[in-house]
Design a binder for these strands. Structure first.
Length: 443
RNA sequence: GCCCCCAUCGUCUAGCCUGGUCCAGGACAUAUGGUUCUCAGCCAUAAAACACCGGUUCAAAUCCGGUUGGGGGUACCA
């Protein structure tokens, strides 16, 4: 049975790069029918935090990557010690100052990487021992290389050791991880050798860089998956974007469902070069997914955002939210955009764009606005077509061009010069607010 | 420093394995025009890349070597 794992360390939130590593593991698992293990690497008791662990699990679920098995390395210390003792007993490891170190013999190690092909390492770059295990380090006065630590002096296992033991015990068949682990691989292969175990297959994913080609960090935008959630990104947009970083479904396809991506997925098709993260393209994809999302679902997702902004209370009018979401569905990259642009639909002290006010409300159209307000006051039903007719009638009676009033009215009603169709906006606001805002426009 | 990985438009990529069909295709972003009450969208158009040098070959983005550039690692962190 094929099995893969994603092994985050709860020393921080789930990173967008980590999410992509998980995604490729997950896609591989689904594409070949393998099971997907989530392993929490919390051996560093100082830096590991429960809060981070919960956030990681939560983000994984939010993205839709459910695991088949879940393990915590902190609960497996006795297993690691058991294997360390075995190596000690066999003379393959030795103790020093309470730590257990592996006797590392100089040799050439060949690693076949599923993405990169053969990679050759010379372990004499990390230690020099002859075939008998005699340490030659330092003998010529230049080399100060050390054997690999298996168990630290405080009794906790070192990363490379528990990684090997766990991948073995959990029967992982293919290790798919970031490129930053390439140089750990020969060290781990040495441990497999000492244990007499056959290593799994390896695939090292290219890293994700920031927009400038540097290391992805908080400075260049959100890195935690939970931050994207808070900004109002849809999980499917994030997953779609992430899979495009280093992999392509082929052809000219950009938007792709997870189901068909899985059908087309192949590790061999993953790129070797690092990819730069583009917030613009993620936003574009999110816009596309919001556009085609079911409005009811968007309303459900939006409610907590609206509550937090105090746009709605506990007993909100769901239909009103639905109407405004419908109107703005095609006009937002993230939910935050909606909160910003549709404020006028929820509150009366909405933001007013100074430039728009200056441009469109500097001419006091007091008379025209009061005629409009009066007309709207008796427009029934107060819908898009009736209000448009009423509006156009007034414009004709006043011998004006439609645009002479369209723009000022939009600014008066919404606080800005851009937005959805004016009549859609008016219908959304309803008679009472529309009339009131028109009357107060020049007050 | 040493070890390892990588290199197609500004960005993500297709093509590279199995050289000719590629004066290199798509998407994001950018610019211009059209539609429209504005924005968004949609449509059309434009500008935009095989890092460099050498080799192999009748022929190289594609194969080989080197250079340069970028990235990763070099912890009793993971």
């Amino acid at each position: 049975m094929a099995k893969v794992r994603f092994a985050p360390s709860p020393t921080g939130y789930l990173h967008i790069g980590g999410a992509r590593t998980a995604l490729f593991n997950w896609m591989y698992a689904k594409s070949v029918g393998a099971s997907f293990v989530l392993r929490i690497e919390d051996t560093d008791q100082q830096r590991s935090k429960k809060e981070f662990e919960l956030e990681i699990l939560d983000s994984m679920k939010w993205l839709g990557m459910e695991w088949d098995e879940l393990y915590y390395q902190s609960q497996r210390f006795s297993l690691y010690r058991e294997y360390a003792k075995k190596l000690l007993d066999e003379g393959k490891a030795y103790q020093e100052n309470g730590a257990v170190l592996l006797k590392t013999i100089a040799q050439e190690i060949k690693l076949y990487d599923l993405i990169r092909g053969e990679i050759v390492f010379d372990t004499s770059n990390f230690v020099v021992r002859d075939e008998k295990g005699e340490n030659l380090s330092g003998k010529d006065g230049t080399l100060l290389l050390k054997d690999e630590v298996l168990i630290k002096a405080d009794g906790s296992p070192a990363y490379n050791f528990c990684c090997v033991i766990d991948d073995f015990l959990m029967e992982i068949t293919c290790v798919i991880r970031g490129e930053d682990h390439i140089s750990n691989t020969p060290k781990q292969i040495l441990i497999y050798q000492a244990l007499g175990i056959k290593p799994p297959k390896f695939a090292h994913l290219p890293l994700i860089m920031d927009e400038e080609g540097g290391r992805l960090s908080k400075r260049t935008g959100a890195v935690a998956v939970s931050d994207y959630r808070k900004q109002g990104f849809l999980p499917e947009a994030i997953m779609n974007y992430l899979m495009l970083l280093g992999w392509s479904p082929g052809g000219d396809q950009e938007m792709i469902s997870m189901a068909s991506a899985i059908k087309k997925f192949s590790i061999k098709k993953i790129n070797k070069a690092a990819a730069a993260f583009s917030m613009d393209k993620l936003k574009w994809l999110n816009n596309q997914y919001i556009r085609q999302a079911d409005t009811n679902r968007l309303v459900d997702l939006m409610v907590p955002f609206l509550k937090e902004k105090k746009y709605i209370q506990e007993n909100f009018d769901r239909q009103a939210i639905k109407n405004s979401v419908d109107l703005f569905k095609g006009r937002m990259d993230t939910f935050l955009d909606f909160l910003d642009r549709a404020d006028f639909a929820f509150i009366d002290d909405f933001k007013r764009d100074a430039e728009a006010v200056a441009k469109h409300l500097s001419v006091k159209r007091t008379k025209e606005f009061s005629v409009l307000a009066e007309r709207f006051g008796r427009t029934e039903p107060f819908d898009v077509s009736s209000t448009e007719k009423a509006f156009r009638d007034v414009v004709a009676e006043l011998k004006l061009e439609a645009s002479d009033l369209v723009h000022p009215v939009r600014v008066a009603l919404t606080g800005r010069a851009v937005g959805p169709s004016l009549f859609e906006t008016i219908a959304l606001l309803g008679k009472e607010k529309t009339v009131e805002r028109l009357k107060k426009a020049f007050a």
